[in-house]
Design a protein around this nucleic acid. Sequence first.
DNA 1: ATTTGCATTTTTGCACCAAGAAAGCCATTG
DNA 2: CAATGGCTTTCTTGGTGCAAAAATGCAAAT
Lengths: 303, 303
Amino acid sequence: MPASPLTLRIADEIKELIRSGRIPVGEHLSTQRLADQFGVSRSPVREAMQVLADQRILEQHLNRGFFARAVTESRGKKARNDVAELARGPSEYEALADDWLTDRIPSEVTEQFLRKRYDLTKAQLTEVLVRATREGWAERKPGYGWRFLPVAKTTEAFEQIYRFRMLIEPAAMLEPTFRIDRQVLAEQRRIQEGMLSSDIAKLPAERLLHNGSLFHEEIIKLSGNMFFHRALVQVNRMRRLLEYRSKVDRQRLQVQCSEHLQILALLENANVMDASYLMRQHLNGALARKSPVILKRDGEKKD
Amino acid sequence: MPASPLTLRIADEIKELIRSGRIPVGEHLSTQRLADQFGVSRSPVREAMQVLADQRILEQHLNRGFFARAVTESRGKKARNDVAELARGPSEYEALADDWLTDRIPSEVTEQFLRKRYDLTKAQLTEVLVRATREGWAERKPGYGWRFLPVAKTTEAFEQIYRFRMLIEPAAMLEPTFRIDRQVLAEQRRIQEGMLSSDIAKLPAERLLHNGSLFHEEIIKLSGNMFFHRALVQVNRMRRLLEYRSKVDRQRLQVQCSEHLQILALLENANVMDASYLMRQHLNGALARKSPVILKRDGEKKD
DNA sequence: ATTTGCATTTTTGCACCAAGAAAGCCATTG
DNA sequence: CAATGGCTTTCTTGGTGCAAAAATGCAAAT
């Protein structure tokens, strides 16, 4: 009985909670609490726990629920691959995005074409296209079919994004509605320090980039103007699309982290002016030293 | 035989072309050309022409295609209502948006609930929800159902939007990649002068607001940075959602038109600095004098 | 030679059914 | 005896075939 995607996703999240120690070994897992936490009903949570019990990650006591077992790395290894790979699929969305960015699909296609190419059901394809629409690079044609919109595909787009961010991010901090929220600052400090101290070389690139975006998004959110925040989220999504194809410069990331911490320090001292200025410098630096290394895909390249 | 929505939409567009004189009376209509123009195949165009022929707006000559007839106001009247009302439906999207903005639906709903409430098929509902997602105020829940996100619902949102625009629009004009395109300027001048001279009192409010947005979007596009343009389009969509519920101040619109023309004049003289400054003033004025009159809907109001 | 008008092919929308998620209920447990 | 697990029931949604609609091909007419 192949568990549903939702169940697997939840299994994955629970496992992460245990691995990261947020659920201590031996602890009892309340179905209801986890369901509320994930925003779903108890059914998929329960199934996820069954799955994890099968994998010896949880222990089921009859009529008493599930308990976290010790996860030894050696033991966890196999089981982990079993679920993790299934749970986070290879993301058809990214495959499509990549194909479009490298001109391997025409700019106008039918749904049928896409379904065959990526082997998707109608609903799955809709999911992907909704996302692409949301990110702003796909739209329905009036009759049948979809059109992909030209996305600046190269360094030019990076520059445009950074020019835009250099404008809005520092300005957002100077908005009259900007409010310093110490809790948010503390949380970001925790994350950035965590990255810097422990494992900047080890963490998956995806996570590193995510944390970076998160920092900027949380700061801009303090402006109290949701449209600044939205605009940033929007361009960050596009940036991610381009960036995950380029090599991550981990050394550069270290510099960025410490700059983030500097900005946080200024904000903690309520020195918004300087923080805004530093933010601009920070973005400018990122633009100037942006690694121009773009990994070419194996496929042929149409100029 | 009730024609399809696409057919009706095209019929409507063709009629608009004739009414506005862009297709002179007596002119032959090439199926292929119109199909290309609308981005569809010949089939729906042809059907639309049949519909219009039935309504005596076109004349069909066997094997020679369709020709535009004179459209007398008196004659056109009835036929016009026939199609126009059908073609541009009452937009379920706006109904949903309105219901959400006035707290008449809960923040978490199932698709079923929405389908029943607005009497939509699954595909139609998807269409609506995709749009709402795209505009940033709806998202899927993990299991079943959708969640509507809190949108600043009143004057506060207007202010936020204008603060944002006051930042990005003038700045976009000062970007190093900003290029003056005389053709675009001329087109906008034509539109703005048209509004000002003829019929600012007569045109439908929808059209007036659309032309206003268009002006700003075309100008910001000249910045050569697609992200500025995107950001503006995004907030304009939200603004429209809020604005179509408020009373249109036609006198104020007249002032805006002439300010638009002043900006155009400066740009035509390549005086970008002053144009940017004036743009900021223009937006500031719009913010300051923004009509706070919001029409209340008939329904009860929570809170 | 071009374009219409019709025929053919292809694509998508819609109704139905099974899988999956949510909610209710009661026994068990501490 | 309150709280929670385990099971059952109810409801929602995703996947699949047919019909409507759009795209395309082609002979005939101008």
